[in-house]
């Protein structure tokens, strides 16, 4: 199993980046072994439109089945939902903390977007 966590830095000690589409990095991590891969999301940070859609597609392409983040908009949620990726949108702390909370069953999955889209 792999989970995706939005991150301000490229390693597990970094703080979770609450933004999804425009997070600095997306870390794909195995919650049991803590083996991870950091995806540089800088191209998306300054995207004109559709950063969430792009990031959600990237998470799906990496085969993650869970996403831990802070805010997730409606378009990103639609893509994640279609890709059967479960979303936690109130995760906090370092990447390690967030993964630990997830392992301990302390996080609950969201059933919808928790922020408005940006075109409105």
């Amino acid at each position: 199993m792999k989970i995706a966590v939005t991150s301000k830095g490229p390693d597990l000690e970094s703080q979770l980046d609450p933004r999804f589409g425009r997070a600095a990095y997306i870390i794909i991590v195995d919650p049991e072994t803590l083996e991870f891969e950091a995806i540089d999301n800088s191209e998306n940070v300054n995207a004109f439109k559709g950063a969430g859609i792009q990031a959600a597609t990237a998470v799906s392409d990496k085969g993650a089945s869970v996403l831990l983040t802070g805010f997730c908009g409606p378009n990103a949620f639609k893509v994640l939902d279609a890709g059967k990726i479960k979303v936690v949108n109130d995760a906090k702390g370092t990447i390690k903390d967030a993964v630990r909370s997830f392992n301990d069953g302390k996080l609950s999955f969201s059933d919808g977007a928790n922020v408005e889209g940006h075109w409105t």
């Binding site: 004109f48 439109k49 859609i53 799906s60 392409d61 279609a82």
Partner: peptide, 15 residues
């Protein structure tokens, strides 16, 4: 460039 189409494994979505 407007990300109006998302393609994943066996899934395509339009916006």
């Amino acid at each position: 460039r407007f990300r109006a189409i998302a393609v994943m494994d066996q899934i395509v979505l339009t916006f």
